[in-house]
């Protein structure tokens, strides 16, 4: 059986909040190393991959591999009932019909308990190899969100160019065009605002802004976001969660016929 206690309910809340607009139903694969999730959007051009390591829970217990097929909208409805600071406990039997969620308020003695019905979901699992990206950009997640939102107002897609000078997000839409350029920036006092650009070769790729703004919903999970690019390869947007847990988004680049 699975029993996982999370000190702060907001972690799961934000994760689900971030991916529920990308994926409708998905399987949470639970094993002794933690809870993992991999799912694609309906068009199969974007993929979300999440791992909550067992260390992130206290305690964590899962003797056998358990698959929790969840409708994320439904899960979100239940999670909304939890305060951000509540202690969240997930429980499930082996081969479960439902997922049990308990929210304990640390300040007062309030305990709420929910059972969420599970479903059988047929999902293909993709093997994602460790890739050496040509360019890796680390920046404040809020900055990335702002850029995406701003450019989304002008165009459908953004071209991300990484070069020695810096990284340039540019777009070309019906009403005009626009671009944002960021340079490497280090602030020792406020490391959260650092911008780091690692580059082995210059890269230029175009992506759908609708998807990128969607990914940005995870901004609340981490102050920094890592953007990895290589030509002709899906973009990786990674948010680090506590410890070695992560939330990653992949997006296929737009190739050829530009509109």
């Amino acid at each position: 059986m699975l029993e996982a206690r999370l000190e702060q309910a907001q972690l799961l809340k934000k994760v689900v909040e971030a991916i529920k607009d990308l994926v409708q139903d998905c399987n949470f694969d639970c094993n002794d190393s933690g809870i993992a999730l991999q799912a694609m959007d309906n068009s199969h051009v974007a993929l979300v991959s999440m791992t909550l390591k067992a260390e992130g829970f206290s305690p964590y217990r899962c003797d056998r591999n358990i698959v929790l097929g969840v409708n994320l909208t439904s899960l979100m409805k239940v999670l909304r009932a939890a305060q951000n600071e509540d202690i969240l406990t997930l429980k499930a039997e082996d081969a479960p019909d439902s997922l049990n969620l308990v929210f304990e308020s640390s300040s007062n003695d309030r305990i709420s308990e929910y059972d969420l019905k599970l479903m059988d979901i047929d999902q293909e699992h993709l093997g994602i190899p460790e890739t050496e990206y040509a360019s890796t950009i680390a920046m404040p997640s809020a900055e990335f969100r702002r850029i995406c939102n701003d450019l989304n107002a002008v165009s459908e897609s953004v071209t991300i160019e990484a070069s020695k000078e810096g990284v340039k997000f540019s777009c070309n839409g019906d009403i005009g065009n626009g671009s944002v350029t960021l340079r490497q920036h280090t602030d020792v006092e406020k490391p959260d605002t650092n911008i780091e650009i690692e580059l082995t070769e210059p890269v230029s790729l175009t992506f759908s802004l609708k998807y990128l703004t969607n990914f940005c919903k995870a901004s609340g999970l981490s102050t920094q976001v890592k953007i990895c690019l290589s030509n002709e390869v899906p973009l990786l947007v990674e948010y680090n969660l506590s410890g070695s847990s992560f939330l990653r988004f992949y997006l296929a680049p737009k190739i050829g016929d530009e509109e």
Binding site: L22, Q24, V45, A46, K254, I255
Partner: peptide, 20 residues
């Protein structure tokens, strides 16, 4: 069971994007 985001994504133009 479908969120607004998922619904909106259906309308996104995915021409030129290969499947993952």
């Amino acid at each position: 069971g479908e969120s607004r985001g998922v619904k909106n994504l259906k309308k996104v133009n995915v021409t030129g994007m290969k499947k993952l």
